[in-house]
Design a protein around this nucleic acid. Structure first.
Length: 349
DNA sequence: AAGGCGGGGCG
DNA sequence: CGCCCAGCCTT
């Protein structure tokens, strides 16, 4: 049996029942692929259901407000995926009359679709012979063929795409692509792979040489930057008796684009009360000096891949001057980072 | 070619 | 605590 035959056979026996495996609708396959980028199946699953439910067709998604798309995406991270998803839906409606393009080349033109996703959709839905190369495939191939070229070098990216391409079966491309990924996720795992009961242990070069634990090779260090966030949480009561606060939308570059947060003062180091007092009038556009208190004595440390956000929430109460605000009861409508969502959940307005 | 972009789970 | 997850985009 060939490599691909073994993978296909293993997949046939071991594939999980996943909701996006019950359809060949390219829209739904696309949704699942975007959601699963850098995301575990268990984490992405509920998001897949809520998106299919809210937007049954690509037209429904295209017609939605970005705000709603981001709100549904809240908590999943890498929010450019949600913005690109929305933009791509609009492209499909406008440029392709609402019908998903069927070829790798055309799919590649859509926002948020790169080599992996174009290969996945074109192979799964249209049986185009394009090999998917995701983290699982890098791992399986690097071990089986004993390749120590760094998977995140340009040489490695090119090398593994070609190698994966050469391993494609003549038919059942989509199943094979899903099979090798599933194999990497379940059998040939990053740590403690199940080599004892592996259907391709025979030809596995890394297993023979004892280099499993060294593969795949990845270069580059992840240096974590420390940042200090001070959120100013203004609270005011309107004449009608409604409690209001303020949110602002993050714009430009950086994290959490287009998500909402409380007015923010970022500092070079830990900020104390006196430093905040100097700035909050300007940030909140206030003339007076309302009472302010620190909500959390210890930093709330919110960890992103490359940043640790050391956060303090400063409560600014009874801001009579507060002009424009949003009702506290409306806060849940806004897409916010998990850091903000957690605060809203625990803070009693 | 390198850096930025989330949040969560696991050993 | 470090690594990894059905990657992509920008510079």
């Amino acid at each position: 049996m060939s490599f691909s035959d073994k993978i296909l056979a293993w997949y046939h026996e071991n594939k999980r029942d996943l909701p996006w495996r019950e359809t060949l609708d390219p829209y739904k396959i696309w949704l699942s692929e975007i959601i699963l980028q850098q995301t575990r199946v268990a984490q992405g699953m509920p998001y897949y259901f809520r998106f299919v439910d809210a937007f049954p067709t690509v037209r429904d998604l295209a017609n939605a407000e970005e705000e709603q798309v981001l709100k549904l995406w809240q908590g999943l991270g890498y929010y450019s995926r949600a913005r690109n998803l929305h933009a791509a839906a609009k492209m499909v409606v406008q440029d392709y009359n609402g019908v998903f393009p069927t070829s790798y080349e055309e799919l590649l033109k859509l926002k948020g679709i790169g080599d992996y996703t174009a290969s996945a959709i074109s192979s799964i839905c249209f049986n185009e012979p394009q090999a998917v190369v995701d983290g699982n495939v890098y791992r399986v191939l690097s071990r089986y063929f004993g390749v120590d070229i760094p998977i995140n070098s340009s040489e490695g990216i090119k090398y593994f795409k070609q190698l994966a391409q050469e391993m494609l079966p003549p038919i059942n491309i989509g199943d094979y692509n899903q099979g090798i990924m599933e194999f990497g996720a379940i059998q040939c795992t990053p740590k403690n792979p199940n080599c004892e009961m592996c259907p391709i242990a025979d030809g596995c070069l890394a297993l023979a040489k004892g280099t499993i634990k060294n593969l795949p090779v990845k270069v580059g260090k992840t240096k974590v930057k420390k940042r200090y966030f001070n959120y100013l949480v203004p609270i005011s009561i309107t004449e009608a008796g409604d409690k209001i606060t303020q949110l602002r939308q993050r714009k430009g570059k950086g994290i959490w684009q287009n998500l909402w947060e409380f007015p923010l003062l970022e500092t070079e180091n830990e900020a104390e009360l006196d430093q905040i007092e100097k700035s909050y009038g300007e940030i909140l556009n206030l003339k007076g000096k309302p009472q302010m208190s620190l909500y959390n004595k210890e930093f709330i440390v919110h960890k992103l891949s490359h940043q640790h956000l050391h956060t303090k929430f400063w409560i600014v109460e009874e801001v009579i001057e507060l002009q424009e605000g949003i009702a506290v009861s409306d806060l849940k409508k806004y897409p916010v980072p998990v850091l903000i969502a957690e605060f809203m959940k625990t803070f009693k307005f």
